[in-house]
Design a protein around this nucleic acid. Structure first.
Length: 391
DNA sequence: TGGTATT
C-alpha cells in the first residue's frame, strides 16, 4: 500500500476550519495519499492547525514539499504553509556533528581539513561570539550518516588541541527538540526550580519535598516525548511567587500610588489584584472565556477597535498575568505576550483583544501610563495590519 | 504592533 521508504510529512499553517476532506484536494495532485490526519488535542479534540500526511510513494512527498512548502498561504493564515518531513522522520540531524574543545585560533578551514577524510562535508562552521572570537566549537555536516559516524569513531577524544582544556569532543548535533529541553533547563535553573536551597526555604520540610517531587515529574516529562508537555506556565506554576529567589520585589517603586501587589508577578493562579486603578464595572457579567467566531473561522482577534497593544510589560509577565490585568475591563477574547522564539523570553509587549470597542477604550483609559516598578505601561489600540508605517 | 502547531 505504501513504499517502505515513504516519508511522513508535517503540514503546518493550516486554518483550523479545514478538515481532512478539505485538505485532500490540495495534496492529492502530487500522488496517491496513504494517510492524512489533522492533529487534534488529545483531550479537547481541538484542531491544532497542523496535520500529518503520508503518500504511498516517497516521490510524491518530495514533489509536494517542493511545490508547497512556504510557497502558498492558505486563507486566513498569516504565514505560508509548511510541508516538511515530520519530526518523527529523523530530519537529517543524523549527519550533523557538534565539535567541541577546539582551539580558539582554529578556523573553518582547519576544522574542515580535520574532518574531510571521513566524507563529503556540506557545511563546516566554527561558532563565534559577537566580537568574532571562536567559541571553541563548530558544526560539521556530512552528506550522509555513515560519514558522520566514522568521524565520531575516529576523532572523538582522540587528541587535545592546543589551547583546549580537554580532549576533542565529536558527537551528533542536538536536534531541535533537544535544544528546546536545554533552554527549558536553563530557564529552570534561572528560576531556581529544583533546589529547595535556592528557594530560600531553609529547611527541607514536607512541603518542599512535595514541591521537589512535582518538579521531578515535570522534569521527567521533559525527557520523554512529547517534549512540549513542559511549558513556562508549568514552571511558573511550580514556583509560588513568595518562594522565588529572584528579586522580583525590586520592581516595586516606593513613593508612588502604584499598588505594590501589581509588582509581585508570575503566579497564574493569583486572584485579580485588589487595588486596581479606577475601574468601572465590566459591561456585563459574562465570563471572559467566550470564543469569537467569524465566518466559522476561529479567530483570536476582536473586530477593529477591540484589540489593544500593551508595551513596557514587566519581563516576567505571561499571557495569564496580562489576562488577569485586563479581565476587569470586559470580555477578553485573547491575551498574548509576544515571546522571542529563539529564547522564550518575553519581549515586554503584548496584545489583548476584547469583544467590543468600549471595553478596549475603558482598558486604555484606565491602564495607559499605569506604573509598574520603574516603568509605565503604554496601552493603545493595536495598529491595524495594513496601517502605513510612519517611519 | 501576534497567532510555529509534531499523532
Amino acid at each position: 500500500m505504501k513504499e517502505a521508504d515513504a516519508i511522513k510529512l508535517f503540514i503546518g499553517q493550516i486554518p483550523r476550519n479545514l478538515e481532512e476532506k478539505d485538505l485532500k484536494p490540495i495534496f492529492e495532485q502530487f500522488g496517491k495519499i496513504y494517510e492524512l490526519t489533522v492533529i487534534k488535542d488529545k483531550y479537547t479534540g481541538m484542531h491544532k492547525g497542523c496535520a500529518f500526511l503520508t503518500y504511498c510513494e516517497r516521490e510524491s512527498a518530495l514533489k509536494a514539499q517542493n511545490a508547497l512548502h512556504e510557497q502558498k498561504t492558505l486563507p486566513g493564515m498569516n504565514r505560508p504553509i509548511q510541508v516538511k518531513p515530520a519530526d518523527s522522520e529523523g530530519r537529517g540531524e543524523d549527519r550533523k556533528l557538534f565539535v567541541g574543545m577546539l582551539g580558539k585560533q582554529q578556523s573553518d578551514a582547519d576544522v574542515r581539513k580535520m574532518f574531510e577524510e571521513f566524507g563529503s562535508i556540506e557545511e563546516c562552521t566554527v561558532l563565534r561570539g559577537p566580537d568574532g572570537t571562536s567559541k571553541g566549537c563548530a558544526f560539521v555536516k556530512y552528506q550522509n550518516n555513515p560519514e558522520a559516524a566514522a568521524a565520531i569513531n575516529t576523532l572523538h577524544g582522540s587528541r587535545t588541541l592546543p589551547g583546549a582544556s580537554s580532549s576533542l569532543v565529536v558527537k551528533f548535533a542536538d536536534s531541535e527538540k533537544e535544544r528546546g529541553i536545554r533552554r527549558m533547563q536553563q530557564v529552570a535553573s534561572q528560576l531556581g526550580v529544583i533546589s529547595p536551597m535556592t528557594l530560600h526555604l531553609g529547611a527541607y520540610n514536607a512541603y518542599t519535598q512535595v514541591l521537589v517531587q512535582q518538579q521531578a515529574l515535570v522534569a521527567q516529562s521533559a525527557y520523554l516525548s512529547p517534549v512540549s508537555t513542559i511549558t513556562m506556565q508549568q514552571l511558573a506554576a511550580l514556583n509560588p511567587s513568595s518562594l522565588i529567589a529572584t528579586p522580583i520585589a525590586s520592581l516595586t517603586t516606593s513613593g508612588t500610588s502604584t499598588p505594590p501587589n501589581m509588582a509581585a508577578t508570575p503566579v497564574p493562579a493569583l486572584p485579580p489584584p485588589l487595588n486596581y486603578p479606577p475601574v468601572p464595572a465590566p459591561p456585563n457579567g459574562q465570563p471572559a472565556s467566550e470564543t469569537l467566531y467569524t465566518n466559522g473561522v476561529h479567530s483570536y482577534q476582536g473586530p477593529e477597535g477591540c484589540n489593544i497593544f500593551i508595551y513596557h510589560l514587566p519581563q516576567e509577565f505571561t499571557d495569564s498575568e496580562m489576562l488577569q490585568m485586563f479581565i476587569p475591563f470586559g470580555n477578553v477574547i485573547s491575551a498574548k505576550v509576544f515571546v522571542d522564539r529563539a529564547t522564550n523570553q518575553s519581549k515586554c509587549f503584548g496584545f489583548v483583544s476584547f469583544d467590543n470597542p468600549s471595553s478596549a477604550q475603558t482598558a486604555i483609559q484606565a491602564m495607559n501610563g499605569f506604573q509598574i516598578g520603574m516603568k509605565r505601561l503604554k496601552v493603545q489600540l493595536k495598529r491595524p495590519k495594513d496601517a502605513n508605517r510612519p517611519y
